[in-house]
Structures are given as structure tokens and as C-alpha cells.
């Protein structure tokens, strides 16, 4: 069991009480994400399909590498690893944009 950090994209932070990172334990990327989902209601359905794979337009990175190019959800993790959940293309908007977007 390794201790890793999961980086949370801004649109999902309401699910984590605003936290941009969550520390979790697990042996694989999939196990870590399942634990993330168990701890934060509603988050996992946004990230993974019912089969436990990343949804379309969602990428999971281990460090700088997309796990699709590794062993997917079965990719093993080590102490200190960082997992990032990143939408495949930029889009959407969040509370912090309101002020700046209204500026002339």
C-alpha cells in the first residue's frame, strides 16, 4: 500500500470541500480513485464510467504520463506519486472566473 496525492481539477473541488489535493493510499491508480470516490460523494461518476474506466474526455495522469499509455487503472503506484484528473480539452468555467470575466 502506497501513499499518493490526487490532484483535483477545479470543477470537481465542490466534491472535495474545495480541496485541490487529496492524500490517499492504494496499490493501483484504480484502487486509489475508488477510495477517492468512496470518500467524496458524486465525484467518481464524473471521472469514471460504470466499468471503472476513465470517461471520454477525461485523462488520468500518473506524474506526467497518461495512464492510458501505461497499464490503465491497473497501473501500480508508489509512495509519493501524484495522480492528476484532467479533462482532455479546456472548457467549462468556475466561480473564480466571474470577477475577471466581467472586467473590461
Amino acid at each position: 500500500m502506497s501513499r499518493v496525492t490526487v490532484r483535483i481539477p477545479t470543477p470537481l473541488r465542490p466534491h472535495t470541500g474545495g480541496a485541490d489535493e487529496v492524500g490517499l493510499e492504494g496499490t493501483t491508480v484504480g484502487e486509489v480513485l475508488q477510495r477517492l470516490g468512496a470518500a467524496h460523494d458524486g465525484l467518481l461518476a464524473r471521472v469514471l464510467t460504470a466499468e471503472g474506466e476513465p470517461r471520454q474526455f477525461v485523462n488520468i495522469y500518473l506524474g506526467s504520463r497518461n495512464v492510458r499509455g501505461l497499464e490503465g487503472m491497473a497501473t501500480r503506484v508508489s509512495d509519493g506519486d501524484v495522480i492528476s484528473i484532467v479533462p482532455a480539452v479546456a472548457g467549462g468555467a468556475h466561480k473564480s472566473q466571474r470577477t475577471s470575466a466581467r472586467r473590461a
Binding site: 481539477p9 464524473r46 471520454q56 477525461v58 479533462p87 472548457g91 466571474r98 466581467r102
Partner: peptide, 22 residues
């Protein structure tokens, strides 16, 4: 669009606190 992963170029608007472009 749904808030995550969203749809490229479209803003959710429907959620409290979402952007309203000027």
C-alpha cells in the same frame, strides 16, 4: 453542459457561481 468534463467552449451557466461573461 455538465460541469465536468464539460464541453469544449461552452460554459455551464446553470450552476450558482458559474461565469456570466460581461
Amino acid at each position: 453542459p455538465e460541469t465536468f468534463p464539460g464541453i469544449e467552449g461552452l460554459k455551464p451557466l446553470g450552476q450558482p457561481g458559474d461565469i456570466v461573461p460581461a
